[in-house]
Computed example of a mutant assay.
Amino acid sequence: MAIKAADVSKLRKMTGAGMMDCKKALTETDGDFDAAVEIIRKKGQAMASKRADRETTEGTSRATVSADGKKGAVLILKCETDFVGKNESFVALADSIVEAALNSDATTAEQVLELELNGAAIKDVITEQIGVIGEKIEIADFAVVTAETVIPYIHQGSQLSVLVGFNQTGFDAQVGRDVAMQVAAMAPVGVDKDSVPAEIVESELRIGREKAKEEGKPEAMLDKIAQGRLGKFFKESTLLEQAFVKDNKQSIKQYLNGASNGLTVTEFKRFSLS
């Protein structure tokens, strides 16, 4: 049967596949759209299998928050090349996925893959796009933050995204953005010293002892010196204790309290492609 250009265009909008691929699929199925979609999906599965061992080093990082500002979702969608990572359709796919995730109960990348997007499971949508684009695509990172206020930040170039949760509402939005940009720039390891993973604390203490020993410090002083260096590490590497990049005479904790009494960060997520 003759395949109409309008039908080819319709299938292209449904799948994102190229015009010739859509025409070929419709021709093979005598114009059956569901069967044509299945052909395109199988092409994606074959391509995904071929490229399963390929390394994904490029992509885009996206972050979004709910209308009430109390929940945010952040993810990294990876691909093989910078060309694809900056492609509008690829970025739009990442935005669609993170929005679907935000409006669900998903908390892991595995759960996100099972969500529905445009009538199909996200894992199948990604497989279709692998066939269309010809590159491996995967959700590399995903997280959710819930708080009284959640502020998102996507760094220029979309290689890094941040979500920061705060314990209050109604404060100046610029304050939240400043803190999100601080997280992006300074990459803190935790909100405060109590939130730093035990293995990092142990590693810093070990490094502190070893360095003091190399410097010839007395054995009896090694633990005390290591604790002192750990304190410096907390000041430099935990968000609330870090010097505010816009005014290094005050810490982030002091900046927040000055903006609104008792204002603090409850949680943050920082995802970067590099």
Rank of each mutant, 00 (worst) to 15 (best):
G85A: 13
G44F: 01
T57L: 12
R229I: 07
A6Y: 00
G176Q: 02
A35E: 11
R12P: 01
D178H: 05
I76W: 09
E88N: 10
I207P: 08
M181I: 08
T169W: 15
N261S: 15
I133P: 01
I39S: 03
V150D: 02
M221C: 02
G85N: 04
M186S: 13
V189A: 00
T107F: 08
G59D: 03
K211R: 15
G72A: 07
Q129E: 09
E204Q: 15
A100E: 13
L11D: 09
F166S: 02
V191K: 06
I126D: 03
K78R: 15
S104C: 10
T238L: 06
S195T: 14
K24Q: 14
C22P: 03
D223Y: 06
M181L: 01
G59C: 12
A6E: 13
I252E: 01
M19E: 08
Q168F: 11
I122K: 06
K224H: 11
K224Y: 03
Y255N: 06
D95G: 11
A180H: 00
A63W: 03
K213M: 14
G165I: 03
V144D: 07
G208D: 06
S237P: 00
V164M: 04
K4S: 14
D172S: 01
G208V: 04
S9P: 02
S237A: 10
L230Q: 08
L102Q: 04
S61T: 11
A259D: 04
F268H: 09
D223P: 05
T15V: 03
V91D: 13
V84Y: 04
A198G: 10
M47G: 00
E88Y: 00
V179F: 04
I252K: 01
I225H: 06
I76A: 11
G216T: 07
G44K: 03
A184D: 06
I252R: 01
S274G: 07
R12L: 07
K78G: 13
L75G: 04
L26M: 08
F234S: 06
T238G: 02
T266V: 08
A226H: 02
A94K: 05
